[in-house]
Design a binder for these strands. Structure first.
Lengths: 192, 192
DNA sequence: GATAAACGGACGATCTTCTTCCACTTGTAT
DNA sequence: ATACAAGTGGAAGAAGATCGTCCGTTTATC
């Protein structure tokens, strides 16, 4: 099992795959992990057949979405620009969580993850790594005495995920703006 | 149309009606406005027939739930214990919003309300009255200079509703606790 | 004890979504 | 330019879920 032959995708197929993932993320953020496969295909401008050829079932599509999301979060947490105080690093991280591609998607995937995470080793690992990176940042800020100590990383992540959820009755931009504003208030509330 | 004959319900029927409403509120808070009617009936310990006899369709059931919810919120906002500063009145009101019967239900009904509110005059009125009472309290706190001025009542209500949503992966008590804790942080963030 | 109200839950109808399949199209290597 | 393997769209059959009705039985009330 050292190397899968993995025939490279044709150019158009790769393009469609990207479109499917991006479109699915948007759609799922707004409507939950159970949007019809047909809509996901339509939204990406392809037929359902194409969707099913690339992802054999809904599970494998969402799995991919979730994994990407965690990887992005971890990458951001690890890409410390340097010279930041713990508090500033936390602020930076929380603001990134306000981005729809992270926060809104994470919110929408919550129920799905709660149900499927445990059955998938890689996903479990990614979850734990992401949580660890987040907690590390929180602890730094707390150790400095800059952040209130009565809430831990997991709890804060949970909190943020509630606030970051996509509000479908608002436009995409309005929803994103609202989330950003609310997160600033949360940050104010976290300051000692 | 001055008076509807409205034959009074038999005692057992009235009891079942209450159970249905209470159970539906709990179930819908956790799973959204589209839980199967059958489950709602089961949860209340009655058959679907009974549910449908009392509420001819899902719409009329949810309508009732929503109206009750607004009435409770309005009653609380209007029951000022007196002698409170604007800020303290706001804190009191926000904490009430953390109660599952208000906040979690409001969160769950959001999508439904967004779609059906406009077609129902009474519901529209209740929404506006509730919003008005809430905004009034917010403005009092802001006029005192106790609360940040860059967020208005409607926006804060929206914010609170995100935070108050039932977290189904947690037990009812844990979810309620978490909401309460998060709201305290929000309140801290709202303080000037 | 009579009677009207209320009850439960099986059932047929309807609607939704999944997933497969195959005739047709397109990228790519020669 | 050509051939062919890879890719595509979308119709259609299968599977399931949910709705709301109906009626024989139970129960509150007088």
């Amino acid at each position: 099992m050292t190397a899968n032959p993995a025939p490279p995708l044709r150019a158009d197929a790769r393009r469609n795959r990207e479109r499917l993932l991006a479109g699915a993320a948007t759609l799922i953020s707004a409507r939950g992990a159970d949007v019809p496969m047909e809509e996901i295909a339509q939204h990406a401008g392809v037929g359902v057949g194409t969707l099913y050829r690339r992802f054999p079932d809904r599970h494998s599509l969402i799995r991919e979405l979730a994994a990407d999301m965690f990887r992005r979060g971890i990458a951001i947490a690890e890409a410390d620009p340097g010279g930041l105080t713990g508090w500033d690093a936390l602020v930076r991280l929380v603001r990134f969580c306000g981005e729809p591609e992270l926060g809104a998607l994470a919110s929408a995937l919550r129920p799905w993850l709660a149900e499927h995470r445990d059955a998938d080793a890689e996903l479990r690992d990614l979850t734990m790594t992401w949580l660890d990176r987040f907690e590390r940042t929180v602890r730094r800020a707390q150790d400095e005495g800059a952040m209130r100590a009565d809430i831990d990383g997991a709890d804060l992540l949970n909190f943020i995920s509630l606030v970051s959820c996509r509000m479908p009755e608002l436009s995409a931009e309005a929803s994103r703006d609202a989330t950003a504003r609310y997160l600033e208030i949360v940050l104010d509330g976290l300051r000692v």
